[in-house]
């Protein structure tokens, strides 16, 4: 079953000013489910820099990123009818498709990635955009508060894995630990995060 046929009360028109960005994206996705090309172009305009930034951060190669982002939007076109606003936010759903594509690619062809020594500094220094902050402000604040409770090394591991696509082996090399130790640390960090985030 898909919700794509359900009509949205918040009009998804680009010119509408009273609907939130989330409602607007949901509305566009519904139209894309009906193979609406104009809505697809609007959806691309609204989300492509976010998806592109996400994938480029993981692959660090423009041409490769172009390919993965292309396939992500093709999937979005095909699967828009499966998007369920009750289960996920539209932007998370779209970013997840792109991130999964990027990580799958990276795991299949690890040698294609040009390693960057400054990844850690890079990640640590980037500030979220004001708008992105606003969108998920409360969730973000909670997550960051919980991340702050982790030991610094484990916090870096989580961020390097999630944002830069580092594998267990990459982390093992960087932190100079056996892979199994890294796995144990990751599991502890993830469990601690989950415990901290649960109401």
């Amino acid at each position: 079953m898909s919700d794509a046929f359900r009509s949205s009360t918040a009009r998804d028109d680009a010119s509408s000013s009273d609907s939130s960005p989330t409602d607007r994206l949901n509305g566009l996705l519904q139209r894309v489910a009906f193979k609406d090309r104009e809505a697809f172009a609007q959806l691309y305009a609204a989300t492509s820099s976010k998806l592109y930034g996400t994938v480029l951060c993981i692959l660090r190669h423009r041409g490769w990123t172009d390919d993965v982002v292309q396939e992500a939007y093709v999937s979005i076109w095909q699967k828009a009818g499966q998007f369920d606003a009750a289960k996920a936010s539209s932007i998370t759903w779209m970013v997840t498709i792109a991130r999964n594509g990027a990580i799958d690619e990276l795991r299949r062809h690890p040698a294609r990635r040009v390693e960057r020594e400054d990844a850690l500094d890079d990640v640590a220094s980037v500030e979220p955009t004001a708008q992105a902050r606003l969108e998920t402000e409360q969730d973000a604040r909670r997550l960051y508060a919980c991340l702050d409770e982790l030991e610094k090394g484990r916090r870096d591991m989580v961020r390097l894995a999630y944002l830069d696509g580092w594998s267990r082996a990459d982390l093992a090399t960087h932190f100079d630990q056996p892979v199994n130790t890294v796995k144990t640390w990751l599991h502890r960090a993830l469990k601690q995060l989950k415990g901290c985030l649960s109401p």
């Binding site: 592109y52 951060c57 970013v95």
Partner: peptide, 23 residues
């Protein structure tokens, strides 16, 4: 959904102008 806010840290980067047409 738990980890999604981490993605807010990623810098938005505009793709090349031809990508939409390619898609």
């Amino acid at each position: 959904s738990r980890l999604a806010p981490l993605g807010d840290e990623v810098k938005a980067i505009t793709p090349g102008p031809d990508l939409l047409a390619r898609i």
